[in-house]
Design a protein around this nucleic acid. Structure first.
Length: 538
RNA sequence: GGCCCCAUCGUCUAUCGGUUAGGACAGCAGGUUUUCAAUCUGUUAAGAGGAGUUCGACUCUCCUUGGGGUCACCA
């Protein structure tokens, strides 16, 4: 035994007693929750990571606990350069500040190699771990055999061929330098079940663990997820592990590991992931196939962060939107997230339409200065042309963004920054081109339209206040057979060619090149008089 | 396939044995409006199927079906 230990473990490993003292229990009230988010640095932050972080952070905050971030970079093959930084900045961008106190660190798993090795050695010494010299081919053959016999696959029971080998046999392989992996010696009986109480799923009966999973990887000596999770969450004194429900079937293994290491078991909550509808079936949002799985999607499109947060919060606790209605001006952090209400269905479908609705509302509540500042920040990165425009004439664009942005009824037509330019593009006088009247639907002929606009041009005065302006438009109506107000028109449709809307629509089309736009009067006020007159000339 | 989870309007969901099954988004209709948007009013739309338990079941139990997850030296 000592021979083997001497051969496979480094000399100066920390002792587990020291570790236990170094990372001692946190000084927190008993109700405080210590939660964490553990992404892998793959160059990509999944929407689900933000979702889980939000939930974890809220519970930590609500209980005066701690929320921290741990980077799970044990799979060096998948790691991408700069990925850690993307994780850091993404969480901060979403306001998901995590505890950076290093007392329980380091929080990057590859920097904790000795710790995992120390615990593996401990397990080995207490005969809860052993060396396995199986080759990939042998493992594959075993799996095929199990498949053929319709048995559970894996390294367990009689298939765990190295579990009970003698020291001599192990030493012999070691002398031959045969590559090996250190496996956990499971304690359960796969035929028996036990009850796991899950924070979200309730009581779940699961088979006991009989899988002898690898603890450390052959490739680089870093731990597998299972060992790393158990060791880290114990040492970092996590109280509540909230994670995706793909982990539910691993909890037996994790219990086994916790017990074998004499650690108190954490509380687990397994959460359904956000899904997407593909054809007629739903599946988890996939980072490879679904652009919206990557949170950079929302940044590029120009979704307001708060909207994404609140959309996710509503997915977590559907009563959030009721709370929001009652507490319009409060910060979402004041909402009390409930564990019981955490949706435990099979995973919601991502609904961009609903997100857009929330986003529209957020933007509608901003003043023109905030709109300017935000779209400016967005354009700086994603729309060079618009950025240049915003830069060239801030005062002008502030006036543009102020249109129908004051008072009771505020426009709600912009959901994301990337559609803002198109919405206001007629204010880009350099690029504005005369509209095509041949496709314009009207009760008037082309000549009549030209005539009407000329007539209007002669009475238009930019000094007019809104009331006067509208009065002039209405005064012009009878001359062209239009009813000055809609009610009169509706009362006797036969008597008129149309109502005042017909006329304003002509003006709108001439000025904006569109059949829909914000309030025309306000648009006219923002545009220079010279420009207005130019546009009124067909 | 074994094991596990899930099942209410198109979508997200409420209901913790007795409700006209509620809300939000989307849709539709209308009021208002200089258009559109907004807003207001109204409205379409749901308990997968089958057995039980019960005076009574969306709610509890079982079966079926359907969907999802897991079964890696990936997390």
């Amino acid at each position: 035994m000592q021979d083997i230990i001497a051969k496979i473990f480094p000399k100066n490993l920390p002792s587990i007693d020291e570790l236990e003292i170094k990372y001692s229990k946190r000084d927190l009230p008993s109700t405080a929750m210590v939660t964490r988010i553990c992404p892998s640095p793959t160059g990509f932050v999944h929407l689900g990571t933000i979702y889980m972080s939000l939930i974890c952070k809220k519970f930590a905050d609500q209980t005066n606990g701690v929320f921290f971030l741990r980077i799970e970079d044990t799979d060096k093959k998948r790691e991408v350069g700069g990925a850690k930084e993307i994780i850091y900045s993404s969480l901060k961008e979403y306001g998901l500040d995590y505890d950076e106190n290093q007392t329980y660190g380091p929080y990057v798993q590859s920097e904790r190699k000795d710790i995992y090795t120390a615990y593996t050695k401990y397990l080995f010494e207490k005969d809860d771990a052993y060396l396995c010299f199986c080759t990939d081919e042998e493992l594959k053959a075993t799996a095929e055999e199990q498949e053929r016999l319709k048995l559970k696959r894996g390294y367990y029971g009689k298939w765990a061929v190295w579990r009970n080998k003698s020291e001599e046999e192990v030493l012999a392989e070691l002398d031959k330098n045969t590559p090996y992996v250190i496996r956990f010696k499971s304690h359960g009986d796969g035929e028996k079940t036990f009850t796991h109480h899950d924070l979200l799923k309730g009581n779940v009966d699961l088979p006991e663990n009989d899988m002898d999973v690898p603890l450390l990887k052959k490739e680089n000596g870093l731990p597998t997820y299972h060992l790393a999770h158990v060791v880290d969450d114990h040492l970092m004194r996590t109280t509540d592990v909230l994670r995706g429900d793909e982990w539910l079937s691993s909890v037996a293994l994790h219990y086994d590991l916790f017990q074998s290491l004499n650690f108190p078991i954490v509380r687990y909550g397994h959460c359904s992931p956000i899904n997407k509808l593909v054809g007629s079936s739903r599946r988890k949002l996939s980072k490879r196939k679904d652009t919206e799985a990557n949170i950079s999607f929302f940044k590029e499109k120009g979704f307001v962060v708060q909207a994404v947060i609140e959309y996710l919060l509503n997915l977590a606790n559907s009563n959030f939107e009721d709370w929001r209605k009652e507490n319009i001006d409060k910060n979402y952090t004041e909402f009390n997230l409930s564990m019981e209400k955490l949706a435990k269905s099979n995973g919601p479908l991502f609904d961009e339409t609903k997100l857009r609705d929330i986003a529209k509302d957020k933007i509608a509540r901003m003043g023109n200065i905030e709109v300017y500042d935000r779209v400016y920040e967005w354009a700086k990165e994603y729309d060079e042309y618009f950025y240049g425009l915003l830069n060239s004439n801030k005062e002008y664009w502030l006036k543009v963004f102020n249109i129908e942005r004051v008072g009771e009824l505020i426009r709600k037509d912009i959901a994301i920054w990337s559609e803002l330019y198109d919405f206001y593009n007629f204010f880009d006088t350099e690029k504005f081109t005369k509209p095509d009247w041949s496709t314009f639907k009207s009760v008037f002929t082309q000549d009549e339209i030209e005539n009407i606009l000329n007539e209007y041009k002669s009475i238009y005065n930019p000094q007019d206040d809104k009331h006067t302006w509208l009065g002039k438009v209405k005064d012009l109506c009878p001359k062209f057979g239009l009813a000055p107000d809609i009610k009169a028109y509706k009362a006797d449709k036969e008597a008129f060619k149309g109502h005042v809307g017909e006329l304003t629509q002509l003006i709108r089309y001439a000025i904006t090149g569109r059949t829909q736009s914000p309030d025309i009067y306000e648009i006219l006020q923002v545009l220079e008089n010279k420009e207005v007159l130019k546009r009124l000339t067909i």
